[in-house]
């Protein structure tokens, strides 16, 4: 599990959306399983990469169950009927994110945080080897943030998935992530959180006259 961090406007979301083929690359090349991203058909890519974006979904009239079921689309037949395996995966995704109680609610009845959990569940139901999440926990309280991220980490380790997410909660990311990518204007550092702390990468993130980084506790201090 890898977190992408950086200051506002540095291009975290842009990077993530480009990796997910949501927007065209500005430059460079992206390889998925050693194959260029643009060589994938939309359908082939859909069984490799699932995304959770920050943009709102178009129809809030979907029920939670309907929304999560849509995650199975790459695998269903021409009209989209679910088979035994699909339903099993959907159920598993719902129980992993603990949405059983909400599954028959309409999306407009949910809070922003609950909706984020639903979107994570949908990505899990899509069952891809790569999951890209754009600020997946921004509306959640601390407990649910940690719960979702721990769950993602567990899934990443258990099923050997690659999970990449952008976040502003650097302190949580330091504690939970396997790797981190720090985006900066002229350089980017990538590595294990401890290693990045040693390289003093976090100190450079914010202007040192307002916020400093304490390497021993792995947290930021306000001056």
């Amino acid at each position: 599990m890898t977190a992408i961090v950086g200051i506002n406007g540095i291009g975290k979301s842009t990077l993530l959306r480009t990796l997910g083929k949501v927007q065209p690359p500005l430059s460079g090349e992206i390889l998925v399983n050693k194959k260029p991203l643009e060589h994938y058909t939309p359908l082939a890519l859909a069984s490799e990469i699932s995304v959770v974006l920050t943009e709102p979904i178009a129809s809030k009239n979907l029920t939670v169950l309907e929304l999560i079921s849509l995650g199975r689309q790459p695998y269903t037949n021409w009209i989209g009927s679910l088979d035994e395996q699909d339903r099993h995966k959907i159920k598993a995704a719902i129980s992993m994110v603990q949405l059983e109680a909400l599954q028959h609610k309409k999306c407009y009845e949910l809070s922003d945080g609950q909706l984020q959990k639903v979107m994570v569940a949908r990505a899990l139901a899509q069952d891809t080897s790569i999951i890209l999440l754009d600020e997946p926990t921004s509306h959640l309280d601390l407990y649910h943030k940690v719960h979702i991220l721990k769950l993602l980490k567990h899934i990443a380790h258990e099923t050997k998935k690659t999970i990449l997410y952008t976040t502003h909660e650097i302190e949580i990311a330091i504690q939970l992530c396997d790797k981190m990518l720090i985006l900066e204007k002229d350089r980017s550092s990538f590595g294990e959180p401890c290693e990045l702390i040693r390289q003093q990468s976090f100190e450079r993130l914010f202007p040192s006259d307002t916020i400093t980084f304490d390497p021993t506790s792995g947290s930021f201090k306000i001056i």
């Binding site: 949501v22 359908l43 178009a58």
Partner: peptide
């Protein structure tokens, strides 16, 4: 059905 999530999600679900 995929369009109900918006175009970006629809694309990520394999919709051309």
């Amino acid at each position: 059905n995929a369009f109900l999530l918006g175009e970006n999600y629809a694309r990520s679900l394999g919709v051309n």
